[in-house]
Amino acid sequence: MICIFIVNSMKTNQNAFFFILAAVALVFLFLINLGLGSVSIPVDTILSGLFTGEWEKSSHREIILNYRFPKSLVAVMAGIALSLSGLQMQTFFRNPLAGPYVLGISSGGGFGVAILLLAGSFLGFSGIVISSWATAIAGILGAVSVLALVSLVAWRVRDSMTLLIVGIMFGAAVSAIISVLAFFSEAEALKLYTIWSMGSLGGLGWNQVGLLGLLLAIGAFPLLLATRSFNALLLGETYAESMGINPVRLRWLVIISTGILAGSITAFCGPIAFVGIAVPHLARLVWKSADHRILFPGSALLGAGLLLLCDTIGQLPGSAQTLPINAVTSLVGAPVVIALVLKRNFSKEF
């Protein structure tokens, strides 16, 4: 279905060329990401191992199948999910600075995790027994509850700009509560929380990767169905309405879709900054289009690629240490975007 979708939207060969280029780059990045790490594994070993099921060394099999492959998949999925939420937020709020977290989702997720990690000692469970499932569930609960509050407001206001401000204010308020919790918590718990907030793509088992994939599909599907509405929304809410688009329905779609996409990524990987805001702009620059038939698949491809690249760099090839993904995305992404922005008139492109 997505294939038909992409092919349909290829008006010019140039668009097609960039799609193929991005897809090929994505595959390469994926393989490199699998190969590099504390132990370098040659790409041909990985390929033959994956396709034949026979591995020269059982340690390679273990590393690839149970550690690196799920992590690379998570990088791809997180890149897709965050870019798609960022793009729909930017179009919906007609604001180039909007991103997946403007409705307070990351603060909400952080709030859930903070309650678990920071207030845990008060409530009687210590940091040692906390599994990645527990953090994920706490993150989801936190994100969902803040989103529910924002939705309550969304119910009452007509204006999308008011919704944007309310979302940001909720985020700020929730962050303040986290600060208060952090102030009163012990050093150990605080460190756990700080590490979570730096984001991490690894450490998830296949079960969690499967769940994440399912959530990604559920969150992205409605976007596909609403491509027409997003295109109409480029002209503003009044025009969209005059062209038969129901803005209220679209608003709920946006809230639910970003809630699922950004919420699940935040819960499993922590709040990953930057990708969601930057990638849609990169897609606009690459494809020189405002059409969501191109921008949705384009942002997904670029987002997945960018996060794989950042993760590969964060591995510090040859070393056992990994940098937190949040630091890498911003370190790598910020100069790239600044360079692009200065080269072309960015604000005019939006």
């Binding site: 979708f5 349909n8 939207s9 596909l224 169905l225 609403a226 491509t227 027409r228 295109n231 109409a232 480029l234 002209l235 062209m243 038969g244 688009i245 606009r284 020189k288 289009s289 405002a290 059409d291 969501h292 038939r293 005019k348 492109e349 939006f350």
Partner: peptide, 22 residues
């Protein structure tokens, strides 16, 4: 939307008649 061509803009006028993908 500065990136949009005139033809694409006029095409948006057909929105009510289009299916989901536009």
């Amino acid at each position: 939307p500065a990136q949009m061509t005139v033809e694409q803009l006029v095409g948006l006028g057909r929105t009510p008649y289009l299916k989901w993908s536009g």
